[in-house]
């Protein structure tokens, strides 16, 4: 069934924790979730979002004026240039990540669509919502839980795509009316009505991504503690570990 896009891993990997042997063997249930390209992409994207937000904020609200010889200065231009470089890198990441969704593991596809047509999915979302409202003990999810998946899809996957597209719409403005960039992204100007409106929404998009990042960070840390499941370290090692599962 289409809804079962992510299946249980075939063989739970058992960490042998008995290296030294003084303690009883306490195997922990772990799954390989994040392949290395995804992990690199994740941290790079995190870095770029911070860089883009900072430079983007300053593009909208420039720092104090600099005195001195105008022709020797490129302060504001520099901020913009960093923004553009970071934006290109982010774009490469977005494209690569989409490519990886196709060729990578099953977990890599999770954040590219949401099976909102599936009853099962909705009931799972309901379970998660209840968990966040402290109404149940929670379930364990190998990949993202369904609510996280929806917010990743809606706020991050679509959000970053919108930022790339609107960003290139703005970038294309300086490339000129007959440039290929304008040809590819000029429609954003018509879509939003004006360059000013496009800027406004690109700027608002930054806050959407930052809000997502904050919630993402909070949920990850909380899951780590409350759900007794590795989150932050998973994105470093690739392994998701459920600390409560071990053979007695």
């Amino acid at each position: 069934m289409a809804t079962d896009t992510v299946k249980l891993p075939e063989r739970p990997h058992e960490h042998a924790m008995d290296a030294v042997g003084t303690e009883p063997v306490r195997p922990v249930m772990s799954f390989y979730v994040y392949e290395w390209p995804v992990r690199i992409w994740h941290w790079l994207t995190a870095l770029l979002v911070v860089a883009l937000s900072l430079t983007g904020y300053f593009i909208a609200s420039p720092p104090a004026s600099v005195a001195g010889d105008t022709s020797a200065l490129f302060t504001f231009g520099q901020i913009r240039e960093w923004h553009f470089i970071a934006a290109w890198l982010l774009t490469i990441g977005v494209v690569f990540r989409a490519y990886w969704a196709v060729v990578g593991g099953e977990h890599a596809r999770l954040i590219y669509y949401v099976p909102f047509w599936s009853k099962q999915w909705w009931s799972d979302v309901f379970l998660v919502v209840k968990w966040y409202l402290f109404l149940n003990k929670g379930e364990k999810w190998v990949g993202h839980n369904p609510l996280a998946r929806a917010s990743m899809f809606g706020m991050f996957t679509l959000g970053s795509l919108a930022m790339v597209v609107t960003g290139f719409g703005l970038y294309a403005e300086q490339a000129g009316v007959d440039s290929w960039l304008r040809g590819a992204f000029g429609w954003t100007l018509s879509l939003f009505g004006s360059s000013m409106a496009l800027r406004t929404w690109h700027h608002a998009g930054m806050y959407l991504l930052l809000a997502f990042s904050a919630i993402h960070l909070y949920a990850a840390v909380r899951d780590d503690i409350m759900g007794r499941v590795s989150t932050v370290s998973s994105m470093i090692s690739g392994w998701r570990t459920f600390r409560d599962f071990h053979d007695e």
Binding site: V6, F31, F134, G143, H144, R228, F245
Partner: peptide, 24 residues
């Protein structure tokens, strides 16, 4: 709230549910 709930639950630490394989 999470902290409070966690402290309360710490004693009766009994979760043995199998993980759901990310099934949506």
């Amino acid at each position: 709230i999470s902290a409070v709930v966690r402290l309360r639950d710490k004693e009766r630490h009994d979760t043995h549910l199998p993980p759901k394989g990310g099934t949506p």
